[in-house]
Design a protein around this nucleic acid. Structure first.
Lengths: 217, 217
DNA sequence: CCATCTTTGTGCACGCGTTCACAAAGACAT
DNA sequence: ATGTCTTTGTGAACGCGTGCACAAAGATGG
């Protein structure tokens, strides 16, 4: 029986082994003292807790470049997601195959949701259409929405929304890039993690008090 | 002079006003006691600290659906990013316009990076090509990489990498969805934030000890 | 010029998550 | 069976971030 110790896993993941053990204990993944964790059992338990063993039908609304990219994305299937339908408002798109699947028209949205028992919807429409699409998804029974449109969606209680802003990650990189350029000496640890600008305030109200210490010249 | 108080901003953002004031103090954004913060000055300071006032030329490598979607994404320009070039390995793509810009061939990658002074690269290639592209970007002088390919990239010290996994957000939604379905009674607070599975361990090593309390039946 | 009022900036305390450290548990050898 | 060795599971301590509460600062009015 192949096993791993919390120490090995922690080293591989770069975290503290005690924390890892405590986290596992929350999931009830009992290991064997003196041996470690049964790999296969552990994988199964974590997969199950994360919902990876379940089949999640999703619909993608808005089949532009992004929608098509999502439809083709291989990572979904392996995580338990199944693209049940592609929906677009453009009549010219209807029937056209994308990722080996015909695009359906927005008119049939409610029927598609209901027929496939979809509870998760992905919105990849332009900003202007997002709220309207969202409302229809919710009305049709969708209770979780992943929003790629640059709009903040309003939803009733009980519906989860997560917004993906493709430029935020880029901004974080630019932020670090700026700091690299600003202070050539004080080297960044470069672990890629977002970190607070300064650890301790360094306020001076003196002559040049309007240029805070943390700012690049 | 239009101003805002920390109290107003905190209410709008849904956070504690003291925390907001403390955060601002780290940036050196001095407000005026009895009045609040000068809106214009505040916006400028935060923009500057975040690097929004700077011009960041970026290249996008891999102009498939996702690359094209990124090239067309409007959110970049408004955040200080400028798409300096689109690069693809397919000779058939070369010269073809995407988002009003001709796609260039991978052969010219190094020259493009250097000519435009690019320090941030976006990888939207298939998984197989990502590491190779990454190596060339780094060798050409790129020090920050945004990776959309489903691979973990290896880079030398001093280079920042951020990986965007489009299915992670979906997985978080599915996780909550699963919990909604599992325990109809114990209602989720529905704030959309990721939260720990349980707040306190509830271990029992009894007869049915292999079914942890947090697991759905 | 003084009093009053508003809002900032921050010391301090609280609470939560992480880490330490160890007892308990099981494997394995003798 | 008994002892030793390894690794888990977890109580307790530590550290850090958040929130409270208040003194300081400046505006505003009499």
């Amino acid at each position: 029986m192949p096993t791993v110790s919390s120490e090995e896993l922690a080293a591989a993941a770069g975290v503290n082994s005690a924390k890892l053990r405590k986290d596992f204990s929350y999931l009830g993944s009992y290991g064997t003292r003196g041996v470690g964790y049964d790999v296969e059992y552990l994988v199964y338990q974590i997969s199950r807790e994360l919902g990876l063993t379940q089949d999640w039908p999703v619909v993608i609304v808005g089949i532009g470049n992004l929608g098509a990219a999502l439809a083709n994305y291989g990572g979904f299937a392996s995580r338990g997601f199944r693209v049940a339908a592609l929906i677009d408002a453009d009549p010219a798109m209807a029937g056209k195959p994308v990722a080996g699947m015909p695009v359906q028209h927005t008119d049939d949205l409610e029927k598609i949701i209901s027929d496939n028992g979809v509870s998760i919807g992905v919105i990849a429409t332009p900003a202007g259409a997002a709220q309207q699409v969202c409302d229809r998804l919710v009305a049709a029974g969708v209770t979780s929405i992943l929003n790629f449109a640059p709009t903040v969606l309003t939803v009733p209680d009980g519906v989860d929304v997560r917004k993906v802003d493709l430029s935020i990650e880029l901004q974080i990189l630019a932020f670090h890039e700026q700091r690299k350029a600003g202070e050539e000496s004080a080297a960044d640890d470069g672990d890629g993690a977002a970190e607070p600008a300064v650890t301790k305030a360094q306020h001076r109200k003196g002559p040049d008090g309007d240029v805070p210490a943390v700012m690049p010249a």
